[in-house]
Structures are given as C-alpha cells and as structure tokens.
C-alpha cells in the first residue's frame, strides 16, 4: 500500500512540475500590456514588448492621437506582471505602437527607438503636418469601423489650396443645407502630431472646409472652395462618404 501511495505521489508531483511548461493565455495577455522603466528612478526609457521607447519631453495633454486604443501599464523593473495594472502607471499606445502616452499619474510621451530622432525633429517643426487623411465609414455605412484614406498629392494640394483662401465666419455663410461632414486628419509623418479640427462640408452655397478649432478662434471658420475646387471636393466626398 505504501509503495502505491509513493508511486501515486511521484506521478502527481511530476504532473505538477510538467504544468510549469504549459503557458497561460491570460498571463500572456497581461504581459502584452506590461511596460518596464529603465530603473527604479530612471524614467527616461521604457521597455515594452521587447522594444525600447525614449521620452520625448512633450506635454501629453496638448497632443491628440487618431487611435490611442491599446493600454499599457508601466512599472519599475522588479514589479511582477500580476500587479502591473494595480501599481503601474496607466498609458496608451497607438495602433502601430509608435508611441506610449501617459496622462494620468504622469504626463509624458515616449517614442519607439527607431523613430525617436524623426519624432524629435517633428517637435521642432513649425508645421509638422505633412500628411492628410480623410476619415470615412466602411461601405455599409454601419456607423462602426472608421476607415482612413490618405490623400494623394493632387488631393492634398487641393485641400491646402482651399485652406490658403480667406476664411469666413459662420454668420457669413448660408446654412440652408449642410451635409454630414467628413473629418480631415492632419498628421505628422510619424503620427506624433495629429489635428482633426478640419472638416469638408457641403452646403447650399457650395463646398467648404470648416476649421473647427474653437478654442483659439471662438467660432468655426469656413474656407469656401472655388467652382472648380468645389467639384473636386464633391467627388472626394462621393467617393468616401461620411
């Protein structure tokens, strides 16, 4: 009987040991959200998913990101992954994992090492917005699944040409009809800077680009497109409906 118990105990112990070779999806998911500072007091770099991120010295509250969706909890090096969400600092990353943005416990922006120099250069530019994307819904217009169309050179030139005109205030524009708008995202090359305060709108008087930056200007301003440009903008709206 004792021999049977011993054999059973040995098999049981080996089975328990073997379980250490089997992973756990829930733990892996937690590790995917766990970032680590360089040291206990060194916050200059963060290691996240095997990549190194360096601090850019920007105010996170002044920046806007198109799609900050994935979360990350950043802790000191010795903190176990199970406690990361409890004791860690909460941040978010964009879809391409180019940046980590912290805006709760601390206010900081980290850029991935390979795009750090490029992002740092963008912080010194007066106009870092080198790329324009048009936001539209998918073909079924289901209200979900925003898509983005990157404007071609000609389309970008069109938008910048219209914006070069003299803006009009709201009271000067006839709003008998105003279509649902499509948002224009002005972005820097790395995506560090993004501005979505421009919209293309169709109204009874034609087509305009609306600058919705209320905070600086009070009321929205309208850049009315000329006849030829209005037709081109309308084609863009028809192709990518809002």
């Amino acid at each position: 009987m004792r021999k049977t118990y011993r054999q059973f105990a040995t098999v049981f112990a080996l089975l328990m040991l073997a379980l250490f070779l089997v992973g756990c999806d829930a733990l892996d998911a937690m590790r995917e959200e766990h970032g680590v500072y360089a040291g206990e007091t060194d916050r200059s770099t963060v290691t996240f998913r095997g990549e190194t991120y360096r601090e850019l010295g920007l105010d996170a509250e002044k920046l806007f990101y198109r799609d900050l969706s994935s979360r990350v909890y950043i802790t000191e090096p010795d903190v176990p992954v199970l406690l990361a969400s409890t004791v860690g600092e909460y941040g978010q990353t964009d879809a391409e994992m180019n940046f980590i943005v912290l805006y709760r416990e601390r206010n900081a922006v980290y850029a991935r090492e390979d795009i750090y120099e490029e992002a740092l250069a963008e912080t010194k530019m007066e106009d870092p917005y080198t790329c324009i994307r048009l936001q539209y819904l998918d073909g079924k217009n289901s209200g979900r699944g925003w898509q983005y169309h990157t404007l071609s050179e000609a389309e970008e030139a069109l938008v910048r040409r219209v914006l070069a005109g003299v803006p009009l205030k709201e009271e000067a524009v006839d709003f008998a009809y105003l279509s649902p708008s499509q948002t224009l995202f002005f972005e820097s090359e790395t995506g560090l800077f993004a501005d979505n305060s421009y919209e293309i709108v169709e109204f009874s008087g034609g087509v305009a680009i609306r600058d919705c930056n209320f905070y600086d200007k009070g009321d929205p301003e309208y850049y009315i497109a000329g006849e030829a440009d209005a037709l081109l903008l309308k084609e863009l709206l028809d192709k990518y409906p809002g």
Partner: peptide, 19 residues
C-alpha cells in the same frame, strides 16, 4: 495551488514576495 499550478502559481509567488 493545484488549481493555479504552473506559470500562474509562479507569478502568484512573485507577486506575494514583492508585496
């Protein structure tokens, strides 16, 4: 401990020691 045997138990011990 049996129900969490494996990686989870190891992480639980790590968290316990850290706390």
């Amino acid at each position: 401990a049996i129900a969490t045997a494996g990686e989870v138990l190891a992480e639980l011990f790590r968290a316990g020691f850290w706390l």
